[in-house]
Design a protein around this nucleic acid. Structure first.
Length: 568
RNA sequence: GCGCCUGUGGCUCAAUGGAUAGAGCAUUUGGCUUCGGACCAAAGGGUUGGGGGUUCGAGUCCCUCCGGGCGCGCCA
């Protein structure tokens, strides 16, 4: 409803510009919600933009438009929704909604918060969001945890913004690192069984391979003790990768992140698919031979240098199957691809994008998001980690220490492109310093009031109201604080659109903290329930308001993958 | 050297090119015999790293310098 109202206001302004014979394609009409509510519910800077063209003072123009606006609104019969239109200093035109319009907003939310939040930005387009995709060579790190939280939440946001979302985990289950993994496991295996072995130079040193070797011995005995052929290495590789991937799946599930597909490089990016991709690039003239290797002309698409796809030893580089993989993604019918990567991969963006462009897609069809690292601290002192020695805090440990909800919320509190400091002590605190609990507490409080009202209704203390939610008659809201809260609620769909456009869920967490803050303030200032027959209307109205707040908080938290508790 | 990200109160961070740069923590001071005090109200604290430019208007865009993080392989 307010959305519709906004577009009608835009239309009104556009007609006014037409009437004034000002070509409106020179000027984009911007009508926004100012961050400070004293400047109204909608505001436009159109007069200032026209000032230069018309060579008149912005105020003068604004006053003219203000006048015409009022007439237009009447003609469109939306004047009942508008309280006033004012002109302010530099030349802003500010529009204020009537309380009737605010009540409309509340009715919509109360009826179906999800429908209220939903929009059609995505226009039903199919989007594939590929994230985490950690090599199955070790446990998930904090970096993967952040990527998982962001990817999953972004998926939820895109979904509510009208995209058809699929989540995919790409399993890098062949190549050198898997061979290395096999060699490392084999070394641990033999070591445990008392053989002296050289640990591979680039091997995986983490303790988890010890545990895995133990497990293997327990299950299958010593049958690989004297078998060191390539078949044995292959066995160790497959065994390790399979086991580790199983653990990864389990951990992610505990973290509340599930995928629609687990896409195996080994099984699904077949030699045939790779050769098809190369063939297509060749036929388009982007492939050449040099120094015994095969090169992809990625410089034609903004890469700094051309890239080798077949090395002089005949093996592929890392890029080659990836090109085929992304070609297949489009073949599978996705309109838009989103990849979520760690910062160590940013040098890889241009070459992959180049390949997608070379295959005939627009650069915008593939968005690659780099999620910056999270550094851990305890009460301000950094936690030292060493990836080389395999000593780092894993997702599993993080969840054990701070819990899923705090972890997910914290990872979404900062913009993806800036590093975030994750304070383990803070995340554990059940106090007002902890933003997770602040938001969850608001929801729990509202739940408590819901319970109270349902009891009151049963007792007949709310007059003839049985179910407190009869939106139609609940309009006795007049406090300024209430309208602040309603306006805040009304921002929710815009926040989601914002996240969707910037491909960053961060502003959702900020919004929920603000909304919770506005609620707590309202709650402390006004009693929701007041005894007495004469107060029923007011009590129900306030209930109706905070119930809607609860619905929006619950939905927002759900999108973030965080529980909205009814008790804490 | 080149490329990407980043620099905002003591700390952690906000702010679709808009109006007086906002929150939380920390500090100081207040508020429950009534719906959950894991809460609220108030105060102090800033040349948005420096310097130019574009604009009616710049924390935001462009240039430049300085500081921090990361990446620059016929590795994956």
């Amino acid at each position: 409803m307010p959305d519709k109202l906004k577009s009608m206001i835009v239309q009104a302004v556009s007609e006014i510009l037409d009437d004034l014979k000002l070509a409106s394609n020179d000027i984009v009409i911007e009508i926004d919600a100012p961050k400070d509510t004293q400047f109204g519910d909608f505001s436009t800077n159109i007069a200032m933009k026209l000032a230069r063209i018309l060579k008149k003072s912005p105020i003068e123009i604004a006053e003219l438009i203000q006048d015409l606006m009022l007439k237009k609104f009447k003609k469109m019969s939306i004047d009942g929704k508008i309280k006033k239109v004012e002109v302010k200093r530099p030349g802003f035109i500010n529009i204020f909604l009537s309380s009737g319009a605010l009540h409309d907003i509340l009715r919509v939310i109360s009826k179906d918060a999800e429908a209220f939040a939903r929009n059609t930005q995505g226009d039903g387009k199919k989007v594939l969001i590929e994230f985490v995709s950690a090599n199955p060579t070790g446990p998930l790190s904090i970096a993967h945890a952040r990527q998982a939280a962001v990817g999953d939440c972004l998926g939820n946001i895109l979904n509510i913004c009208g995209y058809e979302v699929s989540r995919e985990y790409y399993i890098n289950d062949e190549g050198n690192q898997i061979k290395n993994l096999g060699l490392s496991l084999q070394a641990r295996y033999l070591e445990i069984l008392g053989k002296t072995v050289n640990f591979p130079e680039d091997g995986y040193k983490g303790k988890y391979l010890y545990d895995l070797a133990q497990k293997l011995i327990k299950a299958q005995g010593q049958k690989y003790l004297n078998n060191d052929g390539s078949k044995a290495v292959e066995f160790f590789s497959n065994y390790a990768a399979g086991e580790i991937l199983g653990q990864i799946k389990e951990e992610l599930e505990l973290f509340g992140v599930t995928f629609d597909s687990w896409y195996s490089q080994k099984n699904q990016i077949t030699p045939q698919r790779i050769s098809e991709a190369i063939k297509e690039l060749t036929s388009k003239g982007y492939i050449y031979e040099k120094d015994g290797a095969t090169w992809f002309k990625s410089t034609q698409f903004k890469d700094d240098k051309d890239r080798v796809i077949i090395k002089s030893d005949g093996l592929m580089t890392y890029l080659t199957p990836d090109i085929a993989y992304h070609r297949v993604k489009f073949e599978r019918g996705f309109d838009k691809l989103i990849n979520i990567w760690g910062p160590d991969h940013h040098g890889y963006i241009n070459r992959l994008k180049a390949s997608v462009c070379a295959l005939g897609h627009c650069p915008e069809d593939l968005s690659i998001l780099i999620i910056q690292l999270a550094t851990l601290s305890r009460g301000g002192t950094p936690v030292v980690m060493s990836t080389r020695a395999g000593e780092y805090i894993t997702l599993a440990e993080l969840m054990q220490e701070v819990g899923k909800d705090a972890a997910r919320f914290f990872f979404l509190m900062r913009r993806c492109d800036s590093q975030l400091e994750f304070d383990l002590e803070l995340a554990k605190k059940h106090s007002m310093e902890n933003p997770v609990y602040y938001v969850q507490y608001a929801h729990a409080r509202i739940s408590g009031i819901r319970k109270l009202f349902s009891e009151l209704a049963d007792e007949g203390a709310l007059g003839d109201i049985k179910e407190p939610l009869e939106a139609g008659r609940l309009c006795a809201i007049s406090e300024e604080d209430a309208s602040i809260l309603i306006k805040k609620l009304n921002c929710f769909p815009d926040v989601l659109i914002n996240c969707c456009e910037s491909l960053d869920p961060q502003s959702l967490s900020t919004y929920l903290r603000e909304l919770a803050g506005d609620f707590h303030a309202f709650y402390n200032k006004h009693r929701i329930y007041t005894e007495g027959k004469e107060n029923i209307e007011q009590s129900l109205s306030r209930y109706f308001l905070i119930d809607s707040v609860g619905k929006v908080i619950a939905l927002g938290l759900k999108i973030m993958g965080v529980v909205a508790p009814s008790e804490m």
